[in-house]
Design a protein around this nucleic acid. Structure first.
Lengths: 102, 102
DNA sequence: AATACATATAGACAATTATCTATGTGACGT
DNA sequence: ACGTCACATAGATAATTGTCTATATGTATT
């Protein structure tokens, strides 16, 4: 996983409104109009956030007629979790040579 | 965990340079001057990123004489992981009533 | 085909963020 | 005390992002 991709993934979680949207989706799949009712944003702004969430693969969309249904992607969330583990796991193989005293 | 705090935590991970800094810290505690050698940023810019990382509690700092040593905070990382789990766990108690056909 | 509806896209604008240069602060070493 | 070193802070600026209004697109329904 390169730095760029990791940054795109976690962008999903670094805005308050996107966090709210994700929380709303915890109760299951919802269409944009439902999300719109529950969040204080205009329709294009919601659409913008949904794009960022989908690009991060944290959310997936499913089109059905006029509606677009969004849901949390188990696969995407798993990848985010793995990414977080990978980033935070100490690498004990590395010698910790320091230029300055400890 | 409120939305605002969650957003602050994940801001740590939504910038490429901060991801690089975190990766550098995987090999253990490092002072700012060491990080500076390994990353293509000016000293004040690095300092700016370290503040964001510390505010997110993903990194902790330890002052010793002239130097500031930074390391990954196990506690902070644990909290981020828990936050991610909490955000992504489906809430099965909720009925998934929909205004529009599925 | 005409209309209505759900959502996306375009474009403008304001807020936030990332970056830099310049300078301040505090801790040594001489 | 003075200079030097490590780092933080201030302030400017450019890039990015979040938000809005207006409009386009695609899908039913009549």
């Amino acid at each position: 996983m390169d730095e760029r991709r990791a940054a795109v993934i976690f962008k999903a979680f670094c805005d308050e409104n996107r966090i709210r949207i994700i929380k709303l989706l915890r109760s299951g799949e919802k269409c944009a109009c439902e999300l719109l009712e529950e969040i204080n944003l205009t329709q294009p702004t919601l659409s913008h956030h949904m794009k960022i969430l989908c690009d991060a693969e944290i959310v997936v969309s499913r089109k059905k007629g006029k509606w677009t249904h969004y849901s949390i992607s188990e696969k995407g969330v798993k990848q985010a979790k793995e990414c977080l583990v990978q980033l935070s796991t100490l690498d004990i193989r590395c010698e910790n040579k320091s230029c300055c005293e400890k």
